[in-house]
Design a protein around this nucleic acid. Structure first.
Lengths: 254, 254
DNA sequence: TGAGATTTGTTCGTATGTATC
DNA sequence: GGATACATACGAACAAATCTC
């Protein structure tokens, strides 16, 4: 409530003022910084509001224009490029393509890389196999409407799901690949959610701007008998996705 | 895989090199940057690894020492101040104190502020009351072992749960307050998870350093009949908490 | 049609902070 | 520590596009 504007930006913090202001603006655009029509206050007003020079505000705006968040038109003003955040449902039946279907026109999953390798400790533990047992590693990326939304690294028991990489390359879907390999159904056992700054690989794969945030999920899927079939670590672009965790308490309303 | 060290730090990104390296080190300390004993590589090694001058690495280390992440001892080396991330379980029976109990010795919830106010649109919609209907707003903060882990703003129907604020002030628990007000049980209906940079209020309430990340959950709890009883927005310090979402695949299935 | 106000875009100059060698 | 290069931030002025009356 009672925030004073003088304390808004921190100097000598190791983060340039224009970037602090860009981050702030990105956050506050939805909370009244822009008006209902998506029009931003003029640069001079923003400069006064943040207590900085107009050039500094312009640098921040330029960064957000580059990101695709804002659009500036000479003589008219600066406007918000509206883009909604996709809802990614997490439930016992979490499936990537099902979940995002209907929210975006063009949904695409791509296999970036794959290999058969000794299972690392966490993956082996989750899959219930001995560390070092051969496992299939799948590196995939998913895009909605041409924008990358997530990057996943999955592990499968190589003995049980030998043709996983080829199946995924063909079907572009984990669900369809499982089915092709004889597994008709699977369920989500657990999901651990954390968030952190995007690292260099995230910035490249998800086409993010420095300082962006990724939501990281570590998930385990099991078959109908409760045996683990997939261990995966997925990184979501936090500004493009929100996770919707359904309680089993009901789907009555809305 | 094939990451070259030259691409690790980005110049003219608006973030000073020492801060980028500090952020990187904070992230990678758990992933092998420090050895098992928590000892960091010498400054010259770090400088070479990140492709920067030793002075720049020293600035980064100084920032992390200031933050309490590292501890430097002249002549001996630099060491990690270890602190683990608490697991916050999310399920149909999500309860704050139960979830964190056993992971920390000292768990404390505090009522910061409360008021009866017209319910804002989202809260009203979730609670199934008309916008503007009187609702109780609770502002709470939770600490584990003396460190703030989350900050919540909750809304309750004022008509049904009149004594909520007083009950919470006394019991310091939502579950116990509900019980005192005649609601024996409740279930988690939905949880929406997003992540963003901490704003000024987060930095203050959760005692974070600038640039830190908060995980934001928007949750709705319902009673046994499926009627909404609580709408809350909670901000977790992302470096102190991870959310554990239980699928129902492990327990009783429907 | 046009004049003035508003708003973004550009170019000077200057000072300070950051990073390297 | 000193020299150098570049990024960041400020200030002032002007240009170009758009809107209003």
């Amino acid at each position: 409530m009672g925030d004073r504007w003088e304390t808004v930006v921190e100097r000598r913090s190791g983060v340039a003022l224009w970037r602090q202001i860009a981050d702030r603006m990105r956050r506050e655009i939805g909370a009244g910084l822009a008006d209902e029509a998506g029009r931003m206050p003029p640069e001079v007003a923003l400069a006064q509001r943040f207590g900085v020079n107009r050039h500094t505000v312009r640098s921040a705006i330029a960064a957000l224009v580059q990101e695709g968040v804002l659009r500036a038109e000479q003589g008219r003003g600066t406007f918000v490029e509206k883009r909604r955040r996709l809802a990614y449902p997490i439930s016992e039946r979490t499936r990537f393509s099902d979940g995002l279907a209907g929210q975006s026109r063009d949904l695409k999953a791509t296999l970036l890389d794959h290999a058969v390798e000794p299972a690392p400790d966490e993956a082996a533990a989750a899959l219930g196999i001995a560390p070092g047992t051969p496992a299939i590693r799948l590196e995939t990326i998913s895009e909605a409407d041409g924008r990358p939304v997530s990057r996943a690294r999955s592990w499968f028991d190589a003995e049980r799901f030998g043709g996983m990489a080829e199946a995924f390359a063909r079907t572009r879907s984990v669900t369809a690949s499982f089915r092709a390999l004889g597994l008709a159904d699977y369920l989500r056992l657990s999901t651990v959610v954390t968030a952190r700054h995007a690292d260099a690989a995230d910035l490249r794969d998800l086409r993010l701007s420095p300082g962006a945030i990724v939501i990281v999920t570590i998930a385990v899927n099991v078959d109908a008998d409760g045996r683990p079939v997939q261990y995966s670590e997925t990184r979501f672009a936090a500004d493009r996705i929100e996770l919707h965790v359904a309680g089993s308490a009901g789907k009555a309303r809305d």
